[in-house]
Computed example of a mutant assay.
Amino acid sequence: MSFWQAYRNLSSLTRIGVGAGIIAWATVGLYLSDSVEEKLGFTPTEADKEALDRFKPQIHVIERK
């Protein structure tokens, strides 16, 4: 039995609960990720930001007459 089929076999109330739980987990992760990043020392330095800027695509506008 596949994961999708097992999910579809759950009652509708349970599926709503699973979906709400996933959304809540993602929301908490978005709000807490910056503070956890700072506590673990994973904040990017200015050198890291400059190295990343080198890989960004550059847009050059050419005017036509």
Rank of each mutant, 00 (worst) to 15 (best):
R15H: 01
E63W: 10
W4G: 07
I59Y: 12
L40W: 00
A24F: 10
A26L: 15
I23N: 03
H60G: 07
T45E: 08
Y7M: 09
R8Y: 06
D48G: 01
D53G: 07
A26K: 03
A47H: 06
F3W: 08
Q5P: 02
I16S: 01
T27C: 05
E50N: 13
F3R: 12
H60T: 15
V61S: 08
G17C: 01
K39N: 04
K56G: 02
I22P: 01
M1V: 08
G41F: 02
K49E: 10
G17I: 06
E46Q: 15
P57T: 12
A20Y: 01
S33E: 13
W4V: 15
A24R: 02
M1A: 10
I59W: 11
A6S: 15
R54T: 12
D34Y: 10
G29V: 05
F42I: 04
I59V: 15
L10R: 08
Y7P: 03
L52Q: 09
S2N: 10
W4Q: 10
I22H: 03
A24V: 12
K39L: 11
V18M: 03
W25T: 13
K65Q: 11
K56T: 05
A47S: 14
M1E: 10
F55L: 14
R54F: 12
I16G: 02
W25Q: 03
R8Q: 15
S12A: 09
R64V: 14
T27N: 00
S11M: 02
Y31I: 14
V36C: 00
A6Q: 15
L13D: 05
K39Y: 03
G21W: 02
A20L: 15
K39T: 07
G19C: 05
Y7I: 04
F42Y: 09
M1Y: 08
T14W: 10
P44K: 07
S35H: 09
K49G: 03
A51Q: 14
Q5F: 04
T14P: 01
R64L: 13
D53F: 05
A24K: 01
E46G: 06
I23C: 04
K39S: 08
S12D: 14
A24P: 02
Y7G: 00
L10P: 00
F55R: 02
D34N: 10
A26N: 05
